[in-house]
Computed example of a mutant assay.
Amino acid sequence: MGTPLGDFVRTKRDSIQPESLGLPSHGRRRSPGLRRQDLATRAGISVEYLTRLEQGRDRNPSVAVVNALADALSLDAAERNHLRYLAKISGGECAAYAQPAPPRRKVRPAVLETLRLLEPGIAMVTNRLGDVLAHTSDYESVMSASGLLDREDPNLTRHLFTDPRARTFFADWDEVADQQVFDLWLAPSVENSEWFTSELAPVAGPEFTRRLNRHVVPHLEALRIVHPSAGELRFDREVLELTADGQQLVVLLPADEQTARAVGQLRRPQARLRAIS
């Protein structure tokens, strides 16, 4: 049985062309990317040890080994942080959780008051699992057409993989899906992540599980949506980490005048902030 750490190292190794690192291509091979021998040599470790790491038979690499692998794979800053995080959780991953606890869904009053101060802006409070815990009225005005808020317990991750409307509403669906799946690895605890994936995986199918095992580290770009009545809208995203709560305050800012005008036209005069518990 593999580990998230081993999966990530193997996936990154497979994605690297030897020529990009100044190495010979070795001709046609059954497996894509960099050979284990080449990566082990660059990292200064044995092929046998790298094999154990990738296969999950060694779950406790030293800090020096993790840093050497990051250098050998030419990881950027975000990927290096993810590699360190996976090394941290892989060591204790084999522990059994009889009944994992569900994620925290309560939003503190001070956070709700902050959200109220952002009205009529487009903002929400979420957690790493994708639960939409509270949102402003303009968030509802913009997102209601996607179907995300139809359920009493809206969850963006579940919505992306189970509601066909999401694929047309989010212009860059692949990138948004990668972001949401990546956030599962940063969930408040391993228990919460396992609780959610055991519920989602059976209905989300291979699109979800494939992304979960790829460990694509996303880079936050402008969010583009195709609104059925307002057309294409573009938003810049600002994310405030509420570390103590395991939650995030996400604000969507119109990226151009056309989007700002469209949001004004979509605004519902009687709508108000909503907290979901």
Rank of each mutant, 00 (worst) to 15 (best):
213 N>T: 14
50 L>K: 06
241 E>K: 06
66 V>C: 08
24 P>R: 14
217 V>W: 00
200 L>E: 01
78 A>D: 12
56 G>T: 05
268 R>W: 01
93 E>Q: 15
227 H>P: 06
32 P>H: 10
223 L>E: 03
7 D>S: 15
166 A>L: 06
181 V>K: 03
135 H>G: 03
134 A>Y: 07
134 A>P: 00
123 A>I: 03
168 T>E: 11
175 E>K: 11
241 E>G: 06
258 Q>R: 14
19 E>F: 09
276 I>V: 15
172 D>S: 11
179 Q>F: 15
126 T>W: 03
16 I>P: 01
154 P>T: 08
111 V>N: 02
25 S>W: 00
251 V>G: 05
47 V>C: 06
231 G>R: 05
44 G>V: 00
136 T>V: 12
264 G>P: 01
18 P>D: 05
200 L>V: 09
157 T>E: 07
93 E>K: 12
212 L>R: 12
29 R>Q: 02
146 S>N: 04
68 A>T: 04
154 P>K: 11
136 T>K: 03
11 T>Y: 00
164 P>L: 04
182 F>K: 02
54 E>W: 10
252 L>V: 03
73 L>G: 04
164 P>G: 11
99 Q>L: 13
265 Q>C: 07
258 Q>E: 04
148 L>T: 02
134 A>M: 11
271 A>V: 04
221 E>S: 15
198 S>W: 02
63 V>R: 10
187 A>M: 04
48 E>L: 10
215 H>W: 07
73 L>V: 08
17 Q>T: 14
174 D>V: 09
124 M>W: 02
154 P>C: 14
185 W>R: 08
274 R>H: 10
107 V>D: 02
270 Q>R: 12
108 R>C: 08
270 Q>N: 14
37 Q>W: 01
176 V>S: 05
165 R>S: 06
206 P>A: 15
117 L>H: 12
140 E>Q: 13
48 E>G: 12
165 R>F: 00
85 Y>Q: 15
125 V>W: 09
40 A>R: 04
117 L>I: 01
243 T>P: 00
223 L>S: 08
190 V>L: 15
242 L>P: 03
247 Q>F: 07
135 H>Y: 11
240 L>E: 06
233 L>I: 09
50 L>W: 01
237 R>K: 12
87 A>G: 00
35 R>C: 09
53 L>Q: 05
183 D>E: 12
95 A>Y: 07
33 G>K: 00
46 S>F: 08
41 T>I: 09
77 A>Y: 02
202 P>F: 09
253 L>H: 06
180 Q>G: 03
31 S>Q: 13
193 S>Y: 06
38 D>C: 08
10 R>K: 14
158 R>W: 13
171 A>M: 09
188 P>V: 09
232 E>H: 03
67 N>I: 01
20 S>R: 08
177 A>I: 09
94 C>Y: 00
81 N>S: 13
253 L>S: 07
169 F>M: 08
230 A>I: 11
